[in-house]
């Protein structure tokens, strides 16, 4: 069979969602940000809520997310996205509001906003991209940097004595009564991408039913910051990030479904 006979509109299986704009993504080759952008927009398209969705772009690599997602978006000061989302959601309780934040934004500068928005049980969705590093500013150490992991500000590896322990903020917020759905996923392989899409869909459904905060952590790579090729960084991520940040649901329908203390220590 000739290729030209296969490439016909009626045989289409998968293509870029129309809710992504034509702008070329500003991310490095192989960066997980692009995959997550597409997934969020695919879910919004499937639920037909383009007119009702408001996203909050963070400070970090994804600061330009409003150029790429064809929905209403706002920009918050560094770390303050959950506070801005709280305000928007309280003004428009029937809109779908999500924040899109990196680990430096959410787990360092915005720790207070994150913890308190989760504790208040705001009906918003937080999408948290964890790559263990401050990617945009040049690969500095973040709270989520692993023990012994090299970064531009910890060139000999993170030393727990002087630099503290990696912060597992997802395990923390799962224990707060305001959160309804808390999960940790990845997007480096097709299976993980499918699971992450389901999780994003579930998070928006939780928001529709006004059951509380939905929080999705996505363990991602930063091949530029880690000084690796995209595929090397994905392998490194599986070997080093996943033991510290194990994938899976932590809280479903307001009930903790995982032994969090085991993962915290």
């Amino acid at each position: 069979m000739d290729i030209k006979e296969i490439i016909k509109p009626e045989n289409l299986v998968h293509q870029r969602t129309s809710l992504m704009t034509d702008a070329t993504l500003s991310y490095c080759p192989g960066c997980g940000h692009g995959t997550v952008h597409h997934l969020v927009m695919e879910v919004v398209e499937e639920m037909e809520i383009q007119e009702q969705t408001i996203g909050i772009a963070p400070v970090g690599c994804s600061v330009l997310a409003y150029d790429f997602m064809d929905i209403d978006m706002s920009q918050a000061a560094h770390g303050r996205a959950p506070a801005v989302a709280t305000g928007i959601k309280r003004l428009w309780p029937d809109k779908f509001v999500f924040t899109y934040q990196g680990d430096g934004d959410l787990a360092a500068i915005g720790t207070a906003e994150t913890i308190h928005a989760c504790n208040r049980g705001e009906d918003i969705t937080i999408i948290f991209i964890n790559n263990g590093i401050y990617g945009m500013t040049g690969g500095q150490m973040a709270p989520t940097t692993l023990e012994g992991m090299k970064s531009s500000t910890s060139p000999y590896g993170r030393d727990l004595q002087s630099m503290g322990h990696p912060l597992k903020i997802t395990e923390l917020v799962a224990q707060l009564p305001g959160t309804n759905f808390v999960t940790r996923q990845a997007v480096h392989k097709p299976g993980n991408v499918r699971k992450t899409k389901k999780a994003i869909r579930k998070a928006f459904e939780v928001q529709r039913e006004k059951k509380g905060m939905s929080f999705i952590e996505i363990v991602s790579n930063c091949n530029s910051g880690w000084k690796m090729s995209p595929n090397e960084s994905n392998v490194w991520m599986e070997e080093h990030m996943f033991p510290s940040y194990p994938l899976g649901d932590m809280k479903v329908d307001g009930k903790i479904v995982k032994d969090l203390m085991k993962d915290l220590v």
Binding site: L12, H14, Q15, R16, T17, M20, T24, L25, Y27, P29, G30, C31, G32, H33, G34, T35, H38, V187, H188, K189, P190, V193, R194
Partner: peptide, 9 residues
Amino acid sequence: IVCPDGVIT
């Protein structure tokens, strides 16, 4: 679905 830039149809 894994393409970060969504260039594949």
